[in-house]
Design a protein around this nucleic acid. Sequence first.
RNA 1: GGCGGAGUAGCCAAGUGGUAAGGCAAUGGUUUGCAAAACCGUCAUUCGAGGGUUCGAUUCCCUCCUCCGCCUCCA
Length: 461
Amino acid sequence: MRLFDTLSRSARDLRPIDGSTFRFYCCGPTVYGPAHIGNFRTFVLQDVLRRALETGGTRTLHVRNITDVDDKTIRDSQAAGQPLTDFTRGWTEKFHTDCEALGLLPPHIEPSAVEHIPQQIAMIETLIETGNAYAAGDGSVYFKISSFPAYGRLSHLDERELELGKTQNARSNSDEYAKDSLSDFVLWKSRKPEDGANFWPSPWGDGRPGWHLECSAMIAEYLGDSFDLHSGGVDLVFPHHENEIAQSACACGGQFAAGWFHIAHLLVDGGKMSKSLGNLYTIADLAERGHTPMEARYVLIGAHYRKPLNFTLDSLSGAREALAKLAKGARNLAARAGDSVISSADFGPFQAAWDSLNDDLNTPGTLGGLFTGLRDSANLQGSEAAAALAGFNRVLRALGLVLPEEPGAAEIPQEIQDLAATRWQARAAKNWSESDRLRDELAARGWQMKDGREDYTLEPK
RNA sequence: GGCGGAGUAGCCAAGUGGUAAGGCAAUGGUUUGCAAAACCGUCAUUCGAGGGUUCGAUUCCCUCCUCCGCCUCCA
């Protein structure tokens, strides 16, 4: 597996640095509302990466956090009149439901920020001891950027116009007086009235951890000072991941993340997604429009992760047809395979699809490879068909796609079956008007009758 | 303004220094009482615009246009 690394700006082979398990961390959701499809683009691509590694025989350790204490969770929990933990638990459960629907493998470890306050305080103490952080007069603690010369490497700060402190001058910020440098970022936020009951005691007084610190502390707890890959949406490159590097390098030593995997943003109808434009979709929103989570997953992997993806509702309909076509192809292949035993473990006609996936996670190329692979295996029989089907299924699992099943007769309501039978008789009697009327009635009830030469089938529309 | 990314058929979207995968939609045919479904076909002389390098560029270089993201707590 080769993957583009944000830090070195080059594709690198992914091999576990400990020689056995590929350990990676993903910045998880802030649980103050339902996650939207833009969030899920990131989580789905991270899931595909994991599945591809595992399909290729690499063991993984996947850590993804839950951000359950920050400005937004505190603000909205109070607006909802709920204790913070009750509020975030509800949204965490909703997130898990959506993840399962989208076929995301649960992370091996899913730590939450509020459950790691002591670790965060300990990390701040270390940073103060090493001279990388300082307590300000108001009870907040800040990271001293000037103490870490490597600051800005990930986001190429030295190549940017941003002169630390300059752009902040015009900004009104009540904390400014307390910082040595305007660019220093907060590790511990002193308690404020609007925080309500959400504060914790610390050596610097009551308060709560800063957002950036949460990830660093949880990474140190579960992955140590060095691990294989850190991942998130592109918007996290600066300042979040830049700050994590500074905190962790100074507090823990080690190399921190050996590689960085950032997923580009999702656009809707060619523009930015936002609530005010009414184009911010959740999984529930799509379900209301009759689209399944698997259709959403297909769309989300339909573009390369480093390119913006233009999401449209039409693309979901296209995904439905594409998934149905894959399912049909797989059924045809299975029928030709019969009871044959698989004799080889390679990908056969789906080798190109597998190669695409391992070439910087080229998911659209992989999807194309599935269709061409099915086309190229159209004449395979017996064990050759069985081997091809095995390759197809391995690639499909690596993508995390689950194909729609053909509806069984048992799922069709009796009254629908009766209507269909009546129509079939009318049709046999060449009573075309009655036949067409019953066909329309079935359609109105959501069922499509497909006429065959000897028999018919019913499918939900 | 700085940094980063993107512009490929009606839509979504791969890819390559040697002449454009795949999906959706559309459309022709077979089939059908008519449809649908199914099956077999068709569907970019061209890759934002203009220059340059090259035997040859969509792919490399330059300029320009447009769009998106980040620039202190947004995946």
